[in-house]
Amino acid sequence: MPEASLAGIAAAAALEQAWPLPLPEDVRRVAGWPIVAAGVAVIAGSLKTAGTTELASPGRLVTGGPYARTRNPMYVGWGLLQLGIGVIAGSGWVLVSLPFVGALVHREVLREEQRLEERFGDEYLEYSEKVGRWLPRR
């Protein structure tokens, strides 16, 4: 759901123009690009692992690479990109928009999980018990 992240970036940019909410320069300089790089790395690893699998309607359950640590690495990557771009732009509004975007994405993920459970049954249930939805489990 990169559309939600892109909408969050656009909304934050518009709000920044109307009511600036700048981030400190040292935060922008130190944090922005590493966060973007992490997002790109997670997304690239997810795409590489998924290979030719159609993620919208998978023929197999992808459980390796980043999918072995989080069930939703693409969404995690897009969230990191949104955060990093906002930090680079110096917009505090990106921090305000993240929970709203996160709620939209979470709602879609719950729907996707239901479809995966219907399609893959016990295989998906076992996977979801081992791998966290957003963050790795210990």
Rank of each mutant, 00 (worst) to 15 (best):
L21M: 11
D122E: 13
L95H: 00
V109M: 02
L47C: 06
F100D: 06
A10P: 15
P73W: 00
A103R: 06
L47S: 06
A10L: 14
W93L: 09
A56E: 05
L80F: 03
V36T: 10
V87N: 09
V30N: 13
S5L: 03
T53V: 12
R29A: 15
G64P: 07
Y127L: 07
E108H: 06
E113K: 03
L104W: 07
R111F: 04
R69M: 07
L95F: 04
L15F: 10
V42P: 15
F100A: 06
W134K: 02
D122T: 10
A11S: 11
I88W: 05
R69L: 10
L80V: 06
G90C: 02
A10N: 14
E118S: 04
W93R: 12
G102D: 09
L135G: 05
G79L: 08
G64T: 06
G86N: 08
I35Q: 03
L21Q: 15
I43Q: 10
N72L: 02
T52P: 08
R115C: 06
G51M: 01
V42E: 07
V76R: 00
Q17C: 13
A38K: 12
A50T: 11
A14D: 06
R111Y: 09
E117C: 10
L81P: 02
V101E: 01
L6R: 14
V109L: 10
L98T: 03
I85V: 11
A44E: 12
Y127M: 03
E129L: 08
A38I: 14
W78A: 04
R138G: 15
G121F: 02
I85L: 13
E54V: 12
G86E: 02
L55Q: 11
V30Y: 09
G132C: 03
A41K: 10
A50K: 09
G59I: 07
A89N: 02
P22R: 00
V109C: 02
G132A: 06
W33H: 03
F120V: 01
A4C: 13
Y127V: 03
I35N: 00
L104C: 11
E118F: 03
G45H: 04
L21N: 15
A11Y: 14
G59V: 09
K130C: 09
A37D: 08
P24V: 01
W33S: 14
A13N: 14
L98A: 09
I88T: 10
L95Q: 03
A38D: 12
G77Q: 12
K130M: 07
L80E: 06
D122Y: 09
P58H: 00
V109D: 00
A37E: 08
L21Y: 11
A14L: 15
L55S: 10
G32A: 01
G86A: 02
T52W: 15
P34Q: 03
I85S: 02
R29M: 15
A14Q: 11
E113V: 01
S128Y: 06
E16C: 07
V27D: 15
V40K: 13
A7F: 05
G90K: 04
L125D: 13
I43C: 12
A14K: 04
S46E: 04
A14E: 04
R119E: 10
P58D: 01
R60S: 12
A38T: 15
L47D: 05
R137E: 08
K130G: 11
A37T: 08
L80G: 12
V76K: 01
A37I: 06
